[in-house]
């Protein structure tokens, strides 16, 4: 099992021009896209901003992002042995990289 998946990430903070990054990550059947993003952080670039809590249980609902044009949870989206485009949610304020402002408005401290 030496497959690869290619993740094309859109990164950047508010006010910056968004940039695209391509990462090859190891692929094993059954893995999630979040597994691939966590691999990038631990093995290549810890500055990548992603948000998650429950990791795999589909309960915290924090890792919502845009994958190949669809809004999904990264923890339940399956990693595929091909190129996948990963972007922050288009309809929420960008915090940084793949993290958007998803807290209810009255639970934010303001910016």
């Amino acid at each position: 099992m030496n497959g690869k998946a290619t993740l094309v990430l859109r990164r950047g903070a508010p006010g910056e021009a968004p940039r695209e990054e391509r990462w090859e990550v190891p692929f094993e059947p059954g893995q999630s896209v979040l597994d691939g993003l966590r691999w990038i952080r631990a093995q290549r670039d810890a500055s990548l901003a992603i948000r998650y809590s429950c990791t795999n249980a589909n309960t915290c609902k924090e890792c919502m992002m845009r994958i190949d044009g669809r809004t999904v949870y990264a923890c339940t989206a399956r990693l595929r042995e091909c190129e996948m485009r990963i972007e922050p949610l288009p309809n929420k304020a960008l915090v940084r990289d793949l993290v958007t402002e998803i807290a209810p408005p009255d639970e934010r401290l303001g910016s």
């Binding site: 094993e28 059954g30 893995q31 429950c54 795999n56 249980a57 589909n58 949870y73 339940t76 989206a77």
Partner: peptide, 9 residues
């Protein structure tokens, strides 16, 4: 095992 997505261990 096997790897499952969307399931708490």
């Amino acid at each position: 095992a096997p790897r499952l997505v969307g399931m708490d261990p």
